[in-house]
Simulated scan of single mutants.
Amino acid sequence: MKGLLFLSRLALICNLLFAVCLVFQRIPETGLPDAVKGTVLVLGWILPVFINFSLIIAYLINALLRKATSVPAWLIITNILFFIAQVLIQIVFA
C-alpha cells in the first residue's frame, strides 16, 4: 500500500502543476526558461491524466476488495476531482 500512497502524492503534485498549466495559458509571457515551462507542461498537462486514471482504478479495486488503505480520504477525493476537471478540460480544448 505504500506504492499507492506514493502515487497518490505524486498525482497531487502533478495536479497542482496542472493548475499552473492553466495559469500559463492565460499569461503569455511568464519569464521562465523554456526547460522549466516544458517540464511543467509535461508533468502538469500530460502525466496527471494517466496517473489519476490508474489511481482511480486502484482505489476502486481496493474498495471492491475492502482492503484498508493508508491514503487519506481528502487525497483520494482531491485526485478524483482533479481527474474529472482534467477530462472535462481535455474534451473542451481538444
Rank of each mutant, 00 (worst) to 15 (best):
L10D: 05
L75V: 12
L60M: 09
L4N: 03
P33Y: 01
V92W: 13
L10S: 11
A73S: 11
Y59E: 05
I13F: 10
W74Y: 12
P72L: 04
Q86W: 00
V20D: 00
T39N: 12
L47R: 02
F93L: 13
L10Y: 11
T78A: 15
K2P: 00
P33W: 01
A73G: 04
T78Q: 01
T78C: 12
A85I: 08
W74Q: 09
Q90P: 00
T30N: 00
T39F: 15
G44R: 02
F50V: 12
I76G: 01
V40K: 08
I56A: 14
A58D: 02
A85C: 10
L75C: 10
V40Q: 06
V71T: 04
I61D: 07
L22Q: 15
S8R: 00
A85G: 05
A35N: 09
L5K: 06
I84H: 05
G31N: 02
V20K: 00
S8N: 12
G3S: 04
F93R: 12
I76E: 12
G44H: 04
W45D: 13
N79A: 08
A73P: 01
I27Q: 00
L12D: 01
P33G: 03
A19C: 13
L16A: 14
V49M: 13
R66G: 02
I61S: 03
